[in-house]
Amino acid sequence: MKLHTINLNINDQVRTVTVRTGDTLLYTIREKLGLTGAKPGCLNGDCGACTINVDGWPMKSCLMMAVEGQGKQIKTIEGLGNTLIQQAFVEHFAFQCGYCTPGFIMNCHSLILKKPDADDSTIKEWLESNICRCTSYIEIETAVKSALEKNKHHSN
């Protein structure tokens, strides 16, 4: 077994962790660092349940090896603190079973950061990366639009 000890900057903390090169970032943050917000779903880059932020952009953590995470600013759902998008998900009941919720929130969080003036087609393009088997899509769309709107007022 080939082990590497690496430093990962996660949620503004430097965490030292020993990984195999074949370990995904998803496995590492859940099983080695105890951050279980990112959810394992398809493990194939399809469902988006494991979405986190890397350098501000959404990233499916099953599509990234832990060793690739060195030098990156990684944020998981545990690193958010009552953000506008989290509030919006609660206000608009944008979930049912909740399994996909952290992934959706992290994707929406990046969207608000990177595209604060996102139009409908941009929102649709970004959110197509995540699957909600309970089909809460309308509520999620309402929540992200609400958070984008509130973000504009906060920014002004």
């Binding site: 880059g45 959404p58 970004w126």
Partner: peptide, 12 residues
């Protein structure tokens, strides 16, 4: 290329 996979996956 914007139709390949999905937006998040295209970031990798």
């Amino acid at each position: 290329s914007s139709n390949i996979a999905d937006h998040t996956a295209r970031g990798k």
